[in-house]
Design a protein around this nucleic acid. Structure first.
Lengths: 323, 323
DNA sequence: CGATTGCGGACAACTCCCGTCCTCTATTCG
DNA sequence: CGAATAGAGGACGGGAGTTGTCCGCAATCG
């Protein structure tokens, strides 16, 4: 603990940190820890309350202070391991693209990344690599969370960006653009950027970008010829990723299916059978979902899914020598 | 912005919050925003630096301040959406039990949960329900992250806990215990607790607990008859979850396998073939992994995996009517 | 070169902060 | 019921910190 000029503000932060642990602290102990009188602790608690952080106190013997949920988020004071856990959590969540909070996830990642000490960054990288990517979108496309944070901070800093891009036809080009916005779409991420060499706006699929390097050069703000980047993307992307809707009859009570896959829509057929519809952007994903039910089933739609299952059937048969 | 007694500490927090955004702030703008003179901003920056937070400044026109990575984690100042994103990320990560940081994840969840405003809590709950649980441990066992945070804070607060427990044989009992520790083991979580009614220590699988309610009653600390809860658990749990090691030959270049599944150990057989070993605690998990490779393969070990694949083969055959 | 930005010393007026009193209330335990 | 413990908060005085203003200096960019 450093003592000196920045005493009182620093002490408030330490206090906040202590109160954030899931336990109660008697004022006397806080006073000992922070090396001030109990009266000052009471005053500090008042100060925190004035700042909007609800510090709750329980009276009587065995009482104490603790921080409870209020109306505003207090600053989170994390220890090393918790910071790593959050970073890893955000990465896995970003890979799965949880609906509706993609941008917020990336913002939080960028924020954390910016201040994460390098030793922790190494641990996060190691864990991220060790973590088995649960890539259900079996086209093998995984967005690198690292790229997302790099892009997010380049956008926020209005820094020019250099990278290599593999177009859909496999042709690789070098780009040097002014990034404006990151847009999630389904399981993919797109970068909306202005390309000065082509003097026009372009979209880039993040998973097709490699060798990302922010150049450090700033560029002046430029207005997109549309109100919202997401709608602009939707209007200009002619080839959208196809979505499949699976329809199947499964030998499992509707209740059980709902419990295990809240995302499927389920209709009761009889006590032990139901009809499910499931959305997914690849047939691989849908096939795995159905197999994970662990019961007999029959697929009605779509034909692509049936074809894929036939393919799997053949492959498994050859794998275990009973085909 | 509130102005008054708690001015300087609050201003430091606001400053920290601004500096955490991924952009640079000129001192003059910070001064305008925080409604103080630029000199005070410089002093505040000094204060933050004395507290150990590395505020970097770039000189020259178009310069400014920003917070960079240092040696200590600064307090994270999150907006609502970022907080929700982090909460959701931690939940999905907890469900997948990323090796090595399970406890830290739960600690971070408990910390966040403790201070999360209720309106955000509702959003997190809604998103958590909507998120498709990617349950690869196909025994259908998923740990409820909610339970983990409840348990963590009951332990930290030394609060008695009431719940219903389904034993392995299906018999359901009511329990009222003194929780001591949460221990992760493989994909499962165990609660180590003292059961006063039986006057002995017991283990409970978290996924078998329901109707969890902390009673609020405190209990005095009690020493576990062992140094480390994890080893105690290991010593007293006779039936450990078995782990399977799959060995297979796959028709895919070793390079590609390594790129897609960093967790597998791969030996080159020839240019287009390799031999992989993969660890997992269920055969379902191993089977999905092999199928995700999307190529021909042949399974050598273990027999349980072969049996499971035969079963899948039969099921798929019946599903698409070609068996 | 000049403009812009950060850096930091000096000073004076003012504020606040802290520790030490004190009394009061709420809760738990014996 | 009463003792013990914990928080709440007013009063007060001395000391310390904070702030704005004014200044010259250093670094960077165009």
């Amino acid at each position: 603990m450093l003592v000196g000029v920045t005493d009182t503000a620093g002490r408030l932060l330490s206090l906040l940190s202590l109160l954030q642990m899931p336990r109660e602290w008697p004022g006397s102990e806080l006073a000992r820890r922070l090396d001030v009188s109990p009266r000052t602790i009471r005053r500090d608690v008042d100060r925190l309350r004035e700042l909007g952080y609800p510090v709750e106190a329980t009276m009587g013997a065995d009482g104490g202070y603790r921080l409870v949920a209020g109306t505003a988020m207090p600053p989170l004071l994390l220890d090393d391991e918790e910071a790593v856990a959050i970073a890893v959590g955000l990465r896995t969540a970003a890979r799965q693209a949880v609906a509706g909070i993609e941008e917020a996830s990336v913002r939080a990642m960028a924020k954390l990344e910016q201040v994460l000490p390098s030793r922790l960054r190494r641990r996060v990288a190691a864990l991220g690599a060790a973590t088995v990517p649960v890539v259900l979108g079996a086209d093998g496309v995984t967005v690198d969370p690292e790229h997302l944070t790099t892009l997010a901070s380049a956008i926020a800093n209005r820094e020019r960006l250099r990278f290599r891009y593999s177009a859909a036809d496999g042709a690789e080009t070098r780009r040097h653009v002014e990034p404006l916005h990151l847009v999630p779409s389904g399981r993919r991420w797109y970068l909306v950027a202005f390309d000065p060499e082509r003097d026009d706006w372009r979209f880039f699929r993040v998973d097709r970008m490699t060798a990302l390097t922010p150049t450090g050069a700033r560029f002046p703000p430029r207005a997109l010829p549309a109100d919202d980047p997401a709608t602009y993307l939707a209007e200009h992307m002619l080839s959208r990723a196809p979505t499949y809707a699976a329809v199947a009859t499964v030998r499992l009570p509707a209740r059980d299916v709902r419990a295990r896959f809240p995302g499927m829509t389920v209709e009761v057929v009889d006590e032990r059978t139901c009809r499910v519809s499931d959305l997914g952007d690849t047939v691989e994903y849908l096939a795995f979902h159905l197999l994970q039910l662990g019961c007999e089933f029959e697929v009605h739609e779509p034909p692509e899914l049936v074809a894929h299952l036939r393919e799997l059937h053949g492959r498994i048969g050859r794998a275990v020598g009973s085909g």
